[in-house]
Computed example of a mutant assay.
Amino acid sequence: MKNIFNIEVAQTIVKRIENLSTTSSPIWGSMSVSQMLAHCCVAYEMVYTNQYSRPNRLSRWILKTFVKKMVLSEKPYPKNGKTAPQFKIKDEKNFELEKDRLIAFINKTQQFGEAEFEGKRSSSFGSLTASEWSCLFYKHLDHHLTQFGV
């Protein structure tokens, strides 16, 4: 898995995002390109804002026991897989705004670096290593950028 904290990897992801346009359409799934960008921002909002509440104890146990391994494995996410409710973007979003927000989140994360994320707590999965955070961020971005052919 590529390391999102590596400047070259982060720049490659940003270039892929910049190759999107308002007319980009998905190879699979039903999200528009602007909804996909907003969807990808949710992972970062969970880290950098208090916008989302922490799952309850039972939900956290289920996530840590059954979902974490799949999310953090090298195996790609399945097409049209289920997503958590907070990741579902139902209304249309502003493409440029969401693109700029996502790029800013990627740059912020890369600038903070691995040391900032080593042992950092995820609201869903508990404490993660920097490598696990990188996997979580990179794998999700790669999945959706591939979904839109970039």
Rank of each mutant, 00 (worst) to 15 (best):
S25R: 14
P26C: 06
P26E: 06
I27W: 02
G29V: 10
G29C: 11
S32D: 09
V33G: 02
V33W: 00
V33R: 01
M36K: 03
M36S: 08
A38F: 09
H39Y: 05
H39T: 05
C40W: 08
C41M: 04
A43C: 07
E45N: 13
E45Q: 15
E45Y: 06
M46E: 15
M46T: 09
V47N: 03
Y48C: 01
N50T: 12
N50H: 15
N50C: 00
Q51N: 13
Y52Q: 07
R54K: 15
P55R: 01
N56E: 02
R57F: 15
S59V: 11
S59G: 09
W61N: 07
K64L: 01
K64P: 05
T65H: 09
F66P: 02
V67I: 15
V67W: 03
V67L: 15
K69D: 13
K69L: 04
K69T: 10
M70Q: 14
M70W: 04
V71I: 12
L72M: 07
L72R: 07
E74S: 14
E74D: 12
E74N: 11
P76L: 11
P76Y: 07
P78M: 01
P78F: 01
K79Y: 11
N80F: 01
N80T: 05
K82P: 10
T83Y: 03
T83S: 13
A84Q: 08
P85H: 08
K88E: 13
I89L: 01
I89Q: 02
I89P: 09
D91N: 14
D91A: 10
K93A: 00
K93L: 01
N94C: 08
N94G: 02
F95H: 00
E96K: 09
K99P: 09
K99N: 00
D100A: 12
D100G: 00
R101A: 08
I103Y: 09
I103T: 02
A104R: 09
I106P: 06
I106W: 04
K108S: 11
T109D: 10
Q110W: 02
Q110D: 02
Q111F: 11
